[in-house]
Amino acid sequence: MTAEGSPRTGGGAQEPVGDLVQRASQQLSQPVRDEMRLAQAEMTQKGKRFGKGGGLFGGAGLGVLTLQALVATVIAALSLVMDVWVAALIVTAVLAAVTALMAALGKQQISKASPPAPEQTMDSVKADVAEIKEKAQR
C-alpha cells in the first residue's frame, strides 16, 4: 500500500512515505555529521594557532622580565670596555628588537586564527543547503 492507502501497482514501484522519510533522514544526517567533523577539525586548528600566538605574546612579556638579571650582567661586562651609558643603550636596543619580533610573531599567529569560527565548515554547509534547495525545486 502507498501512503494514500491505495494498493501498489506493479509498474509504479512507489515507496511508502515512511521509507522515503527514513531514507531522507539518513541521507541528511551523514552530511551533517561530516560537517560537524570538519568544524571540529577547523576549530582545533584555530585553537592551536591562538594558543601558539598567545604563548608568543606571553613569551615576549616574560622574556623581558627574565632577562633583567642578564641585562645588568651584560651592561656591567660591556662597561669594562666602554662607557656605562653606551653599554646600557646597546643592551636596551637589542632587547627592544627581540621584544618587537616576538610581539609581531604572536600577532601574526593570532591573526591567522581569526575569526574564531569554522569558516570552511560554514561555507560547506551553505553549499549543502543551496544544493538541497536546488534539488527540492526540481
Score class of each variant (00 low, 15 high):
Arg49Thr: 04
Pro7Cys: 12
Ala13Trp: 15
Val64Lys: 03
Gly59Ile: 11
Gly58Phe: 02
Ala13Phe: 13
Gly59His: 07
Ala117Cys: 02
Thr73Ala: 03
Ala76Pro: 02
Pro7Asn: 08
Asp128Lys: 14
Leu62Phe: 12
Gln108Trp: 06
Met122Phe: 01
Pro116Ile: 08
Thr92Pro: 00
Ile110Lys: 01
Ala69Gln: 12
Asp123Lys: 14
Thr2Ile: 11
Ala76Tyr: 01
Ala117Val: 08
Val125Thr: 11
Ser111Asp: 14
Arg33Ala: 15
Met122Leu: 14
Ala87Arg: 00
Asp128Gln: 15
Ala3Trp: 10
Val71Gly: 11
Gly18Tyr: 15
Pro118Ser: 01
Ala104Gly: 09
Gln26Met: 12
Val129Phe: 14
Leu101Asn: 09
Lys48Arg: 11
Ala77Phe: 04
Met1Lys: 12
Lys46Thr: 06
Gly51Asp: 00
Val21Glu: 12
Gly106Met: 03
Pro16Asp: 15
Lys46Trp: 00
Lys112Arg: 10
Gly5Phe: 07
Arg37Leu: 08
Ile75Pro: 03
Gln30Ala: 13
Ala136Pro: 05
Leu89Ile: 06
Ala24Gly: 10
Lys133Cys: 04
Ser114Gln: 09
Lys126Glu: 13
Ala100His: 00
Ala87Tyr: 09
Ala69Ile: 02
Ala24Ile: 14
Glu4Lys: 04
Val86Leu: 12
Val64Arg: 01
Leu89Val: 07
Gly12Trp: 14
Ala41Val: 06
Asp19Arg: 06
Met1Gln: 09
Leu101Thr: 04
Thr99Tyr: 04
Gln27Tyr: 06
Pro116Gln: 09
Ile132Glu: 13
Phe57Asn: 11
Gly59Thr: 05
Gln137Glu: 12
Arg33Pro: 05
Ser6Val: 02
Ile132Ala: 13
Val86Ala: 15
Phe50Arg: 11
Gln40Thr: 03
Asp19Met: 06
